[in-house]
Amino acid sequence: MQTNTADTLSVDIKVPAEMPEFSEDLTYSPRMRVVRVGQSLKTWRVADQTFESDRATPEGIEQTVIGMLSDLRFLCDEHGLDFARIDRMAYGDYTVAKNEARREAAKQAESTAADNVPSASLKLQVLGMYSYAAVSSLDGYQYLAGFVRATAVSKGTGIFVVNGVLNRATYKKLLEEARAAQLQVDRVVVYGEIATYTGAGISFTKFDELPGLDRG
């Protein structure tokens, strides 16, 4: 924001659809809408003469939204419009957009998870690093290659192979397979390319740390 004269200010406004981070968004997604309304907040704060104060806190944003909504009511009164009716229509639009975003995220997660499914050969290579006296192989699962045998005090620990990224969506599928095989769900052993989702119950090893591994 730069001051041009004593009474006039210029505001740097960005168009979300032209921003690199939204290049793959085909429609105005919820995250694009947040950026879009953020541009409106900047200009409203100039008109409200609050642009010099720090409004980035939740309380500050709340006060700005209250002021904008109040102004919109006066605008509707000026043009004989029913604000309550318009607000209901806006809520309907919000609900549709939010549900569509959830469906798209679920589809993306399923697609990513499917891309991570390892070959039978890759699973066997990973299991081959263990002593055959200590592990058992399993068939019929996407990620579950085998398990470290159970002891008198604990269930077996699943050995999973992810041919790509271990993310939250894939991790949830690992747990589903662990339950189906009656293995531990509070601890899993995972081999993959990289992990963007980790936790105390996940023992993750990168493929790069396994000498001689052939992923082809």
Rank of each mutant, 00 (worst) to 15 (best):
E21L: 02
T50P: 01
R55K: 14
A6W: 05
R73L: 07
W44Y: 15
F207N: 04
L183H: 04
F83R: 10
S53H: 10
Y132L: 10
L26H: 08
D12L: 12
Q125N: 05
F22E: 04
R102S: 01
M129V: 14
A90C: 11
P211I: 10
T157D: 09
K155R: 13
R33L: 15
S131E: 13
N163R: 14
G80S: 00
V126C: 12
Y28T: 03
L210I: 11
G80E: 04
F160D: 03
T198R: 07
S203R: 09
D7N: 13
V15I: 14
D7E: 14
V35E: 07
L213D: 03
R45E: 13
A120S: 13
Q39W: 02
D139G: 08
Q182Y: 09
V148H: 09
S136M: 07
G146Q: 12
R103A: 00
A180R: 15
L75P: 03
I202H: 05
D139R: 08
V15A: 13
A17H: 09
L138C: 04
D87M: 13
K172S: 06
S53N: 14
F160E: 07
L122V: 08
R31M: 00
F22H: 04
V35N: 04
P118Y: 12
S70E: 15
Q182K: 11
L138D: 08
S70R: 15
V34T: 06
R36S: 15
N116D: 08
G140K: 03
Q63P: 15
A134G: 02
E209S: 03
T27Q: 07
V96Q: 10
V185S: 06
D115F: 01
K155A: 14
T170M: 06
L124D: 13
R102H: 00
H79P: 00
S111P: 02
P16R: 04
T5S: 12
S203E: 11
D214E: 09
Y94T: 03
S119P: 05
D186L: 09
G156P: 09
D77P: 08
T112W: 01
A180V: 07
T95F: 07
A6D: 07
V190L: 00
Y94H: 01
D139Y: 09
V153G: 11
V189C: 15
Q49M: 01
Q63S: 15
Q142H: 11
N163Q: 15
E62I: 00
V35W: 05
E18I: 04
F83D: 12
S23H: 03
R31V: 02
D214S: 09
T196A: 05
T3N: 12
E177A: 08
G60E: 12
L41C: 03
G201E: 08
A47Q: 13
V148K: 11
L144H: 12
S70W: 14
R168M: 01
C76H: 05
T27F: 03
T43N: 04
P58V: 10
R102N: 00
I202C: 04
F207W: 05
S154C: 12
A56H: 15
A114Y: 02
E24Y: 03
S119K: 11
M89C: 14
V161P: 08
E104N: 01
A101H: 02
T50R: 06
L175S: 06
G164F: 01
Q108E: 13
V153Y: 12
